[in-house]
Design a protein around this nucleic acid. Structure first.
Ligand SMILES: [Mn+2]
Ligand SMILES: [Mn+2]
Ligand SMILES: [Zn+2]
Ligand SMILES: [Zn+2]
Lengths: 144, 144
DNA sequence: TGTTATATTGTAATGATTACATATTATACT
DNA sequence: AGTATAATATGTAATCATTACAATATAACA
């Protein structure tokens, strides 16, 4: 399911929502709510932060966006809701996609009575940029 | 590395820290800072929330505790720092351990230049208790 | 026992997210 | 086109987890 697919049938379209959707479509940067707000604001300086959160909630309810808890400081959003995994930089928190179908089946016993609905693999490490500048400035968030 | 192993050589021992360590040792419930605070408070009613956070930070620095971002509402802490994975209930947020060594190797190309330091598999689903009461009360956190 | 670096405490500050009341507007129906 | 109305946007305030800070207390060691 693409984020824009049949979306105008599902929600009332507004300029703000259109701008948010345009920003999200095909976006692989896993932006935070603030990233979205700051970007959309360039074109729509009057947009409210609350509108960004409201729209994200709406898109989540429609399964057009996936919320990631992978970053310990803020929620990140992924317009690609197809099954895939992630690699995160411990320093700048840049997140990139990994499209590999790992064998992650577990037995009923191993599932300890849980009904499993989805699986997610997180790889943690250092991105190329942060590895180079490792000993200099630390803790700087990604601003690509 | 066990959480208590040689710990008195590493940090200044205090009654508060001893109580926190005692609570954490062998604990598989993946408590939040508040869970720790509430439990330790029964024995040490004067303990401060800040002390819990400070101690957790110290233990993280010593690699005696692992911080989990798996719960979208609060950080959770795991005194078992050995490699293992987790299964979380989408409803009550109960987290259980999975000790399976999944094949998660990826090529250098797949790693996109990242240096990978650790891997973590998250399984999401419903715990047995929440599955039973699915249609009644929702969103209730685990209080085991 | 005294010294001192380190830890604890209470409180205030921060930062992300949510709640709420009011104003605006997209959509559908004359 | 004009109007009604339910949904949406906005600004502000509230909430909640976590962190910062300054004053007080204490574990470790001589
Ligand atoms: Mn992704
Ligand atoms: Mn665990
Ligand atoms: Zn990086
Ligand atoms: Zn549950």
């Amino acid at each position: 399911m693409k984020i824009l697919e049949n979306i105008e049938k599902k929600i009332k379209m507004t300029p703000q929502r259109a701008a948010i959707l345009k920003y999200l479509e095909g976006n692989t940067s896993h932006p935070s709510a603030e990233d979205i707000f700051e970007s959309v604001r360039k074109k729509y300086p009057m947009i409210s932060f609350t509108t960004v959160y409201n729209t994200l909630q709406t898109l989540k309810d429609l399964d057009r966006v996936r919320e990631l808890n992978i970053d310990d400081e803020r929620k990140r959003y992924d317009p690609n809701v197809n099954l895939h995994h992630h690699l995160i930089c411990n320093n700048c928190k840049k997140i990139v996609d990994i499209f590999i179908d790992f064998p992650l089946d577990i037995s009923e016993e191993e599932a300890q009575g849980y009904t499993i609905s989805c699986r997610h693999v997180e790889f943690y490490g250092l991105c190329p940029k942060c590895r180079k500048t490792k000993n200099k400035g630390q803790g700087n968030r990604n601003r690509d």
